[in-house]
Amino acid sequence: MRATRALLLLTGVGFGLWGVWLMRDFTREQLTSEAFWLAGGVVLHDVILAPVVVVLGYGASRLLPGHFRSGAATAFLVWGTLTVTFLPVLSGQGGKPGNDTVLGKPYVLSWIVMTLLLAGWAVGGALWRRRRRPVEVTAEP
């Protein structure tokens, strides 16, 4: 295991340095733009996305009825990660003038349908769970 780890470590450092070497002739302007995009994702995630999800999870665990929580969490996970995945096509950017073979689908409509379906899944799952669970949970002495 020690040898495996050492080998992984050395290969990893080597690959990383090779990547940096490939940037040796990039202009200052290109490197600045690259640095912005390298740091941008980390900052967006750690400062905005992750804290928002933590706050939502905190709120949901207190506000939602018990039988709602698990299904709502899964539905939110699927909805949130898919929304991020589809952000480029939802952005309205890109494409090519006079070429409708690119970005030729009603993406926002599909996203609304996806949102409704996942909300329906969360509610349906909660109702099913409530029916299945005996009343004993609330009937404590």
């Binding site: 290969t11 990893g12 990383g16 490939l22």
Partner: peptide, 11 residues
């Protein structure tokens, strides 16, 4: 950047 990613992943 792919080389940097796969390198830091191995580390």
């Amino acid at each position: 950047v792919a080389w940097v990613a796969i390198g830091s992943l191995l580390v």
